[in-house]
Each structure stands twice: as structure tokens, then as C-alpha cells.
């Protein structure tokens, strides 16, 4: 028996070895290397990488651009989460309610398309929407007597533009996952509740939402992590636009790239990456804890 279990474990290890090797090479090793680099001063081309301890982290704490990037990224990530999850839940409920109708497929596809459409053309389209002079958004606001807004230039409005673009992209994926979750909820729960006189809102509030908690946890974690990693959205909406004005919304990944490949400070950028990793890990842990506590309480 014992030798059978041992040979089974051996087979499992051999079978998993290629995948584990690839995972270790493309995931674990780069993370370990980033952690190591964050403690060194390296200019990308020099063979010398002197160890400088926590000096990169100390400098980051007083770096106005990094702190601005951290603040912007955090605001964007939480705003995207706050918009995406409730919106996705509502949309998923509506689509699920129309399950079986002829247009159900169309609704799902229409909601999911922003997630699969290529980011750069999508961001360019939004750039046009937000254009202060020619954009349809200001035109629409003008119809209601609201003055044209410098969407892509004003420091606050530019962040809002990035949030809208990110939420628009994230909501499709969240809806799809939530619909799958909703369809896995046992119909008997709804039937029992209906027999007890529950209305639609009560069904959604007391059956659908609690039953979706594991799915909501997954969607929240994925949305938050991807929002902390935003880069192209901010870059395309505002930066390097010689003809069109645009406020560069400084986000963490953009700051890292700038420090790595323009300022040639790879160790410094690695320290930023370590901080981003730590934030994401802490927030993910907090989400797990939050959902688990609530699940236990309910």
C-alpha cells in the first residue's frame, strides 16, 4: 500500500515536472530576481550591480513621482473595483433573468466584447469620446447646458477617464464569470424561497448574492490585480500625444518602465515592482479574509 502511494506520488511529480519547471522559470525566478535586484544599484548595461540594501526603498518613499503614481494607481484600482463588481452583478442578473431568450447570446456577447477587443484601438476610440473639442461626450453635455470639460487634461478628470476605460473593459469579463456562477446555483433554492413568499429582490439579495461569494471573490481579486497593473490605458489616453493635449496619468507600471528603460535604473524600478507586489498580496489576502469572514458569519 505504502509503496503504491509512493509510486503514485512519484508519477504525479514526474507528470507535473514540465509544468512546474515552466512555472518556476517564467514566474518564480523573475519574482525572485526582482526581489534581488531591488536591493542593488544596476543601470541595465553595467556588469557591476553593487548591493545597496534598502536604499532604493528609502529613496522611493521621498520620490514625488512614485508617490503620485502610487496614489493614482490605488485610486484607479479601487474605483474600478467599486464600479465593476456592482455593475457586473446587476448586468449578470439582468442577462441571467433573460436566460433562454433569443437575445441572451447577443447580450452576453455585447457585454464581453470590450474585454476581448484590442486595447490600443479601444483606448484611441475613448480618446476621441473624451476629446474636449470634437468629442461626443462634451457635445452631449452641451445639449444639457453643461460646459465643455477638458477631460484628458484636467488632473482629476484625466484619472476619471482612465477609470471609465478600465471599468468598461473589466465589466465584460466579470459579467461572464458571474453568469456562470448564477447558472450553477441550484434552482431548488429559488423554488423553496418562492414557496416561502420571497420576491425577486429577496431572491437576489438572500440567495443569489450569498451563493456567488466564491465567484465574487475570484472576480474581485482578478479585477483589483489587473487594475493595479494598468499601463497601456493611461499611456494611450494621454501620453506622447503631440497633437492632442493629454495629461499623463502617472501609474506604477508606467513609472517602472520609465525608471528601467529611460532612466536606466533597473534596481530602483525593481523596488517599485516589489512594493506593487506587496500591495497586491496584502489586498488579495484582505479580500480572502473579508469574504471568508462574511461567509462564516452568514
Amino acid at each position: 500500500m505504502r509503496s503504491g502511494a509512493r509510486s503514485g506520488l512519484g508519477f504525479a511529480l514526474v507528470a507535473l515536472a514540465p509544468v512546474l519547471t515552466i512555472y518556476a522559470t517564467v514566474r518564480i525566478y523573475p519574482i525572485a530576481e526582482t526581489l534581488r535586484l531591488s536591493l542593488h544599484n544596476w543601470n541595465i548595461i553595467s556588469p557591476r550591480k553593487p548591493f545597496i540594501g534598502l536604499a532604493n526603498f528609502e529613496e522611493l518613499m521621498g520620490d514625488a513621482l512614485f508617490l503620485e503614481a502610487l496614489r493614482n494607481t490605488t485610486i484607479i484600482a479601487f474605483a474600478v473595483l467599486a464600479i465593476t463588481i456592482p455593475a457586473a452583478l446587476a448586468l449578470a442578473a439582468l442577462i441571467n433573468h433573460r436566460y433562454g431568450s433569443r437575445l441572451a447570446g447577443f447580450y452576453e456577447t455585447a457585454i464581453f466584447i470590450p474585454h476581448v477587443v484590442s486595447l490600443v484601438p479601444a483606448a484611441l476610440a475613448w480618446k476621441w469620446v473624451f476629446d474636449a473639442k470634437l468629442g461626443p461626450l462634451n457635445w452631449l453635455l452641451g445639449r444639457f447646458g453643461v460646459a465643455a470639460q477638458p477631460w484628458l487634461y484636467d488632473p482629476v478628470l484625466a484619472v476619471i477617464c482612465v477609470i471609465v476605460l478600465c471599468a468598461w473593459q473589466a465589466v465584460g469579463y466579470a459579467v461572464l464569470i458571474l453568469i456562470v456562477g448564477m447558472r450553477n446555483i441550484s434552482p431548488s433554492l429559488y423554488e423553496a424561497a418562492r414557496l416561502d413568499g420571497a420576491n425577486s429582490w429577496q431572491l437576489f439579495r438572500f440567495i443569489t448574492t450569498p451563493q456567488l461569494k466564491p465567484v465574487l471573490l475570484y472576480v474581485s481579486v482578478v479585477t483589483l490585480i489587473s487594475s493595479f497593473n494598468i499601463y497601456a490605458q493611461a499611456f494611450v489616453l494621454a501620453s506622447d500625444s503631440q497633437g492632442a493635449p493629454g495629461k499623463l496619468v502617472r501609474v506604477l507600471v508606467l513609472d517602472m518602465l520609465e525608471n528601467s528603460f529611460r532612466n536606466y535604473r533597473v534596481g530602483y524600478a525593481a523596488a517599485e515592482a516589489v512594493i506593487l507586489l506587496a500591495i497586491v498580496l496584502v489586498l488579495t489576502g484582505a479580500q480572502f479574509r473579508l469574504f471568508r469572514d462574511r461567509s462564516a458569519a452568514s
Binding site: A132, K133, P150, Y153, G243, A244, P245
Partner: peptide, 10 residues
């Protein structure tokens, strides 16, 4: 003004 089109495009 900052929101105006700028540079070669303008």
C-alpha cells in the same frame, strides 16, 4: 489653453 489641439496637428 491646455485643452486645445497643439503642435503640428493644430
Amino acid at each position: 489653453s491646455p485643452e486645445m489641439k497643439a503642435d503640428a496637428e493644430a
